[in-house]
Nucleic acid binder design. Structure first.
Lengths: 346, 346
DNA sequence: AAAATTTATGCAACCGATTGCGTTAATCAA
DNA sequence: TTGATTAACGCAATCGGTTGCATAAATTTT
């Protein structure tokens, strides 16, 4: 149907090698022929067949992103969106296409990721630490297939490249912010105990408390699924304690809203008597009343870094592996913005 | 590096044609040779090279989704997420890979979508109505390249396939819900006047009001960018009117939160004195107080339908084009849940 | 002006599968 | 048993580019 390199060559009275060299900007072509050929290409609406090119030079100019879709909501979280956006941006800048595949799906015994990698559909792959499979990683290592892990792949002993949010730092940062605001009894609502990011946040939280000479109490840490109701219940229960928390750090916005409601039910005005910080600075954190102070995690940057490292690896297979931690920062809103002096004067 | 079909053939003492026929389940192979070859394939860890296959049979088993990224937030909206999820699911079920590309990016004079289509990287493409380009569509039509539009492509005169949310029905549904609840003076906060979905929602809104014998007033319709502040300002202004609105339909959650705050500032309890409905039933609509009643749009289904039609087109180029409208439904929450009798008794 | 370089281009093999056609072997009908 | 039919497989061309090597033409050097 559409024109091939041979059609162009014939029409221009040159060989297809010449056309190929022009397409790829190789040297050794006279200006005259180049111009003539380019003109013909335009006339014939010629576009090189990318599949044929991939086939000929053994590289696809595509990378894959494996996503971990357990339920709809986990797909529609902010983390995912911005990371994909970051990945796509960098991929595109470097001439790579981005293939997205759901890592939970499989046909027969082969996962979609497996097929993309060993079927040579992509030159490299980004996969979440939640979906690591030792056998799969081993197979990739054996052929030196480039990959980057999203999130610290702690369960892997091997040496590999990954990017992650510095959740330890984030947990500590939240504590420091609250303490600076005069809060002293800080709780932590985590959205799960298995996830490495939750573990890290709690590590940072505990470490910071310790450094500040504040007690680290087990009963102030609660792991629960991320719903408003769970957040509400967990906080309500903590409020029963002898010295109830006067602030809480939440792993996400749902828990934060739950905590907010619990505070209200207990007659604790936020931020005056109770402070709240949530991780993940999604736009909606501005919508609650009071607006929630957040630990901003750079999900876009995470994607950018992942794609960038991956592409470097693709272009230099012998590149040593690289690990990147992205710092977080506090975005202060109403839920912790109290007049500190009043508190100090107690 | 890794085994090719020829390696397998040689090891099994057959021709590569035979191996190919086995891979593709063509007939005319004896059980003995099939088993032997399959065994060898396993031993050699053979996986067919997908690029070579694509090249040989002229089809890529991949589709592209063009996304319209103007700013970060538009990327991270719920609409996008769930649609992508729906598309990926259907694509995967049918053995297609999904390539995602940002339609706003381009290199030289060629957009990423253009390159994917005419570079034969994909067999079909899904693109948003916001990114339609006449020349591009014409070029695709000329070679009968399969595509599906996300959102009614009203600006296109040509006959083509698309899927959309039935926003006209959604707008009408919102009105009917509010009227049933006893609200009579219903305003509309739109997130823009150019977007077809906003136009459609207002069409449905106006039509329903008309059918119910209620006046359609220009001053009750406001187009503004989607922020809480704009929603608040727009509603505050409407409250100055002689007969102020007693309910509002918002194009999204930000405007709805703005409207909620405006009502509160004006001393209008929600839902008792003022009703609010927002489009797009994202999880966060449950988080405000009161929780917002929404028009639920089936974004996942939208993606499923788009992918499904596209794949049918790929498999039968002569398929007539198809248009699909997905109905919306009301998810009732606190912001309209008032005791209707009190209102009727006025 | 002849020799030595450099530049511009063509030839042909190659990437790894698919497939139409032909051939041999096996099965069936007469 | 022979001829006809079918099943099982191989040969070789093909898909559309890329690239090492060879060669001819242009340019520079001596």
């Amino acid at each position: 149907m559409s024109a091939t390199i041979h059609d162009v060559a014939k029409a221009a009275g040159v060989s297809s090698s010449t056309v190929s060299r022009i397409i790829n900007n190789k040297g050794g072509i006279s200006a005259k022929t180049r111009d003539r050929v380019l003109e013909i290409m335009r006339k014939l609406d010629y576009v090189p067949n990318d599949t044929a090119r991939s086939f000929a030079n053994g590289s696809t100019s595509a990378i894959a992103l494996v996503i971990d879709v357990i339920e709809t909501r986990s797909f529609s979280n902010n983390f995912f969106n911005n990371s994909v956006f970051g990945i796509e941006t960098v991929a595109h800048e470097n001439g790579f296409n981005l293939i997205i595949t759901n890592g939970r799906m499989q046909k027969g015994n082969i996962t979609s990721a497996d097929k993309l990698v060993f079927g040579k559909k992509v030159d490299g792959i980004i996969l979440p630490n939640s979906l690591l499979d030792h056998a799969f990683i081993e197979k990739m290592n054996k052929i030196q297939f480039p990959y980057v892990v999203l999130g610290d792949p702690r369960t892997l002993d091997a040496d590999n490249s990954w990017v992650d949010i510095n959740n330890v730092q984030g947990g500590a940062l939240a504590v420091h912010h609250l303490v600076k605001k005069g809060y002293k009894n800080i709780a932590f609502l985590s959205s799960g105990s298995k996830e490495i990011f939750n573990q890290d946040r709690i590590t940072g939280y505990s470490r910071a408390l310790h450094e500040l000479g504040l007690p680290v109490l087990d009963e102030r840490i609660c792991h629960c699924n991320s719903t408003v109701e769970n957040g509400l219940n967990a906080m309500s229960q903590m409020f029963q304690a002898d010295t109830p928390p006067d602030a809480v750090i939440c792993s996400d916005f749902y828990l934060a809203v739950g905590a907010l409601r619990a505070a209200r039910q207990n007659g604790l005005p936020v931020p005056e008597a109770f402070g709240i910080i949530s991780f993940d600075n999604t736009p909606v954190t501005e919508l609650s009343e009071p607006a929630i102070t957040t630990v901003d995690i750079d999900t876009f940057g995470l994607g950018e870094q992942a794609a960038s490292i991956l592409i470097q690896k693709i272009e230099d297979k012998d590149m040593s592996s690289r690990q990147i931690l992205l710092s977080t920062k506090i975005v202060e809103r109403e839920s912790t913005k109290r007049n500190q002096r009043r508190q100090d004067g107690e």
